[in-house]
Write a protein that binds this DNA or RNA. Structure first.
Lengths: 147, 147
DNA sequence: ACTCTTCCTACCAACTAAATAGGAATACTG
DNA sequence: CAGTATTCCTATTTAGTTGGTAGGAAGAGT
């Protein structure tokens, strides 16, 4: 599995939003506490203008709300416990398992290689099990217990 | 998980070698029945000169024996049941899970993103479970039962 | 009006993957 | 001992992706 810089940054940004919004105000999160892109970029060492494109993807995927203007910023659309790592990966990346750029379920093999497709589908399923089961809340609490 | 053309071709070539060597002569395989690169390239539609580089990798990884000359060719060093998909992937690819080119176990996160490393390690383990459990023999017999 | 911030588009540079070409080394054949 | 078929290896070209930058247009508050 290859995690691109885009996917890596997206996850770190989402975690930073969840953390910033959750710790001071209400722990249920939901839509308060707007976090500015600039502060996310600084706290996780992400180039600001690159990050803005990523935040846009996350918003279009329905994971973030945004607000412009002087007191603008970003907030999660759902509580961290209801956003999985897989949700974020799919928002920025597309398919999780791909063979030469083709999604695993669209591959076409012939002859002795016919069985390969099932291997990729099994891999895809195994990855999905991990990333869909792990939520942002899980990752934040891991940090609390083992700093 | 991204499967490169190199990895895809390597697997198809290995399957073709296993099949060509196993079907006519002894089903135990092992080292007889040399298969020429040209016939592998044709049966699986792989550019010949590109394939030759891949076969070289597989030989260096100890998965293939090669023989030069008029009656030369390639053969598996072990029976198909003892070669896993993971063996082949690692022979051509290096690490299975990587974050921006860095192997999963060498990633360094800080702050709220600390927990991400464990996610990638879990993914890596899940993938390994699938690809190390599936052997070339499994893939060939799948084909026999579902053509 | 003025300022701040998100939004959006276009672009550049570096890298990697994919494929090609051409030449050595090696082994069998007559 | 030539001659030929084949593996072996390296260098180069080509195309696509990725990571990153720049510059503004649109909206929101003061």
């Amino acid at each position: 599995m290859y995690i691109s810089a885009r996917a890596d940054y997206a996850l770190r940004a989402m975690l930073a939003v969840a953390d910033a919004a959750g710790s001071p105000g209400d722990p249920a999160a939901g839509g308060g506490e707007l976090v500015k892109a600039a502060s996310l970029a600084e706290s996780q060492d992400i180039p600001l203008s690159f990050l803005q494109g990523i935040l846009l993807d996350l918003r279009r995927a329905g994971l973030l709300n945004s607000h412009r203007g002087t007191e603008g910023g970003y907030a999660l659309t759902r509580p961290p416990a209801e956003i999985s790592v897989g949700d974020v990966l799919r928002a920025v990346g597309g398919a999780i398992t791909s063979v030469r750029g083709i999604p695993a379920d669209r591959t076409g093999y012939h002859g002795v290689a016919t069985g390969l497709r099932d291997v990729w589908l099994a891999v895809d399923g195994a990855i999905a099990l991990v990333v869909d089961r792990t939520t942002l809340a899980d990752l934040l609490s891991d940090r609390a217990t083992a700093p």
